[in-house]
Amino acid sequence: MKTRDVLRQEIRYQRSLLNADQQAEQSLLLSKRLIKEKVVKGVKHIAIYLANDGELNTQPFIDWCWQNSITVYLPVIHPFSKNNLLFLKYTETSILVKNKYGILEPKLNVQDIITVAQLDIIFTPLVAFDPYGNRLGMGGGFYDRTLSAWHDQYQQNKHAKPLPVGLAHDCQKVNTIPFESWDIPLPKIITPTTSYNFDI
């Protein structure tokens, strides 16, 4: 079995081979698929991320959310709690700043923070996923920490919120991911061509 670091390198490289036209086409396909998803119907608060490092561009879907009165939140690296996330409201007038990884995030304002429990959906980035819903991230553990309380509740109640949904290119699916005890699998992952549901 390949190590997690080798897998990250390989999949990030494959993702980087997609040219600008392919990226734009795949992003629009993803947005169209998300709009039709049952889990999106009737939601009020979603967390999502801005594309980085060859990830699918989420802005077309964000634009649709804004037009349909769905409040959008972006992850912000917690200023005091190491490797933890906050979620801040994202609007067309939000001031964005680069975090330590060079990723744009809303400028910190406590009035814009929402708790994880108040979110309907958290759309999570990932580097790779397998047929069992296992997710390989960039290695910081940000989303595993964010979703740990949800995962505990989900074992008792399959309708526990927020619903975490991974977003990925089709090329990011692999046969198997080396699993660690702290990893949080996802019940749903969506690509431009397919919606996967997993019994986790």
Rank of each mutant, 00 (worst) to 15 (best):
D170I: 12
L136Q: 09
T115S: 15
G137Y: 12
D130F: 10
D144T: 01
V127N: 09
Q155W: 03
Y154A: 08
Q118N: 14
T115G: 10
G139L: 12
A117M: 10
D120F: 00
G140N: 04
G139A: 09
G137M: 09
L163E: 04
L167N: 02
A117S: 13
I122W: 02
D130Y: 08
F123A: 11
K158V: 07
Y132H: 14
V116M: 08
R145P: 09
S148R: 11
I114D: 05
L147T: 05
V127I: 11
T115Q: 13
G139T: 10
D130H: 07
D120S: 03
D152S: 14
D112L: 14
Q118L: 12
H151K: 14
F123S: 08
G133L: 03
T146D: 00
M138A: 05
N157F: 03
N157D: 15
T124C: 00
F142W: 12
W150G: 03
A149M: 12
I122C: 04
D130R: 06
I113N: 12
G139Y: 13
M138D: 10
L147A: 04
L119N: 06
I121W: 01
L163T: 05
P125H: 09
V116S: 02
R135C: 01
P164Q: 03
G137E: 09
G140L: 03
I114P: 02
D130A: 05
M138K: 08
L126Q: 06
C171Q: 14
N134I: 03
L147S: 02
M138T: 00
Q118F: 03
G133A: 06
A117E: 15
L167A: 01
P164G: 01
D152H: 13
Y154P: 03
P164C: 00
P164D: 00
A160T: 11
A149G: 07
K158F: 01
G139Q: 13
L147V: 04
T124N: 02
Y132L: 14
V127F: 07
G137V: 08
G141C: 04
V127W: 11
Y132I: 06
P164F: 00
D170G: 02
N157T: 08
F129W: 12
D144V: 00
Y132V: 05
